[in-house]
């Protein structure tokens, strides 16, 4: 996991706000957001490295076409972060 060292935005508490874990780090989510959007909002820009050159990858097409943003959620690998809607207590693991 790489990312700019930006402060984690603080959301007001409420039913439509919850947290997910990204490699154990809490990341706030507004209900309906995708895992990828929540990570980006928390300053995490990449969560995968390429298998040959080890280059970082995150969101690119943002609409489920390019498969650059693949991520593991609750142990299920190869999910498109731009399409998976985050659920409370999701655990995201990056590589």
């Amino acid at each position: 996991m790489t990312g700019a060292s930006e402060p984690t935005p603080v959301h007001p508490p409420g039913a439509d706000h919850f947290r997910i874990g990204v490699d154990g780090r809490p990341v706030p989510v507004e209900a309906g957001q995708t895992v990828g959007a929540a990570m980006l909002a928390a300053g995490i820009r990449s969560w995968r490295t390429t298998r040959f050159a080890g280059k970082p990858r995150g969101l690119f097409c943002g609409i489920g076409v390019c498969f650059d943003c693949l991520v593991t959620v609750n142990g299920t690998p190869s999910l498109r972060a731009c399409l998976v809607t985050a659920r409370p207590d999701d655990e995201v693991s990056t590589t």
Binding site: T2, A37, A38, A41, F60, G62, C82
Partner: peptide, 23 residues
């Protein structure tokens, strides 16, 4: 073009419209 932070125009718009997140 493969650097994180490079987004398709549609992807940037989807983040904002669908998630309320500025890229």
């Amino acid at each position: 073009w493969d650097l994180p932070g490079v987004l398709t125009a549609g992807g940037a718009q989807a983040l904002i419209k669908g998630n309320g997140v500025a890229p």
